[in-house]
Design a protein around this nucleic acid. Structure first.
Lengths: 229, 229
DNA sequence: GCAAAAGTGTTCATAATACACCCATGT
DNA sequence: ACATGGGTGTATTATGAACACTTTTGC
């Protein structure tokens, strides 16, 4: 028991669970993990861990993510707390859900394998334990909200990418098609992207220019990208 | 110590803190509470309490709110967890912040007094303890987001109100003026409000019609109210 | 030359903004 | 009769959606 001056005792275990999004081969993907402890041992679960004594829940989430992907710099945002008394049959466990965006091309593949975790397309997920489905749903909602008001992709796509790739990412997130012309105009009007001189010829004979994010330009744009709801 | 099958011990106390918004006399207000325990005894704090063993954090927030306002039906939404290890000098306390919208005309004034709590205009707040300022800031952000995509007011204004009152509420929330004509048109276009036959003559000689929310109409409207950011 | 994707331009509908103007009435 | 807020209408501009059209180049 940790010391405190309140006349209270600890009754809840505290965990974090991470909804880890990645993007590969035109699909939004989720990193899952084969649970190694009872209950529900061997079933697929979100990547999670206990919160230590001397760290914030954010610290814990970063630590857990580093442990499984080898990445230190990644986007992380709190989703919400899940605290139904019976959510975990193993005890009274409170879990803080986070969602993370990671670039699959940067991750440590060995580490992922060693941790018996793997990527699943968001449309072909296995059954998840406990209330992890609900966590995913909330995280997706938050991701959509974020993507609708700012240009995401920096955290998910490779350093250099085409507008087509970006558009497909948005299609994956919102589960709908975007008009190629209008999408391009909208994106370019933000002034966030910089065109490079190189082209990707894998998709067409003409070739599509590669783009990158300009440095530190996230703050100059404030309009919406997609209107949804 | 609560029983669990994990090889873990409890190290965090768990609390909820509520950012309680109300609206009175053209001002957005916050219900604060004079802290009765050390540390920071006697200072102003958000309304909070411990999470019991057998309840979710939402349950705890409702219980705390009922205890201080006497109200059972009120709007409540989770903001986020605050968990910096040193946020509370009294011990390792994790707090889940919620914001609530309540109708000041419905509250139990006696109870509020008895609890040594009182309403403060959002623009004239006293210094708050710990990280409660940060909690308020995040809650306000969430409230603005909510108000920008749906018509709030049902939870804050009296049963019958004028468009002017609603506009002033929005002005208070967003800290800016809205064009009276355009605001009215926008609001009326939602079809959520119903005009009554009575008028409020306190503000003008002509008198302004009272309006109420139609029953169960929150779901039919999906557009934005205010564009912000 | 043609197919296929890249990229640009044009048109139309809708929505946000600014603001002029009439209305009702207590003093 | 006039000042005051209530309420309506209109002109202007900005934005989004649909889609036609031009460009490039491997085959």
């Amino acid at each position: 028991m940790v010391q405190n001056i309140y006349n209270q005792s600890c009754t809840h275990l505290l965990a974090v669970d991470c909804i880890i999004f990645g993007y590969l081969q035109d699909e939004l993907k989720l990193l899952l993990f084969k649970r190694r402890i009872e209950p529900a041992k061997g079933q697929w679960s979100l990547v999670g861990g206990w919160v230590q004594d001397n760290e914030s829940v954010e610290d814990a989430a970063y630590r857990v993510l580093y442990g499984i992907t080898g990445l230190k710099d990644l986007f992380l945002e709190q989703v919400q707390v899940f605290s139904e008394p019976d959510r975990d049959p193993g005890g009274r466990v409170l879990s803080v859900a986070f969602y993370a965006l990671i670039r699959i091309d940067k991750q440590d593949e060995e580490l992922i394998k060693k941790n018996s975790s793997s990527w699943f397309a968001i449309s072909k997920l296995p059954k998840l334990i406990f209330d992890h489905d609900k966590m995913l749903e909330k995280a997706l909602e938050k991701l959509r909200k974020k993507a609708s008001i700012e240009l995401i992709g920096r955290q998910l796509l490779p350093e250099e990418f085409t507008i087509l790739q970006l558009r497909k990412l948005y299609s994956a997130i919102f589960q709908r098609e975007f008009d190629p012309g209008n999408f391009r105009k909208k994106i370019m009007s933000t002034g966030i992207l910089k065109r490079l001189d190189t082209k990707d010829k894998s998709m067409s004979k003409k070739g599509a220019y590669y783009y990158t994010y300009k440095d530190r330009s996230e703050d100059l744009f404030t309009d919406h990208i997609v209107r949804y709801l």
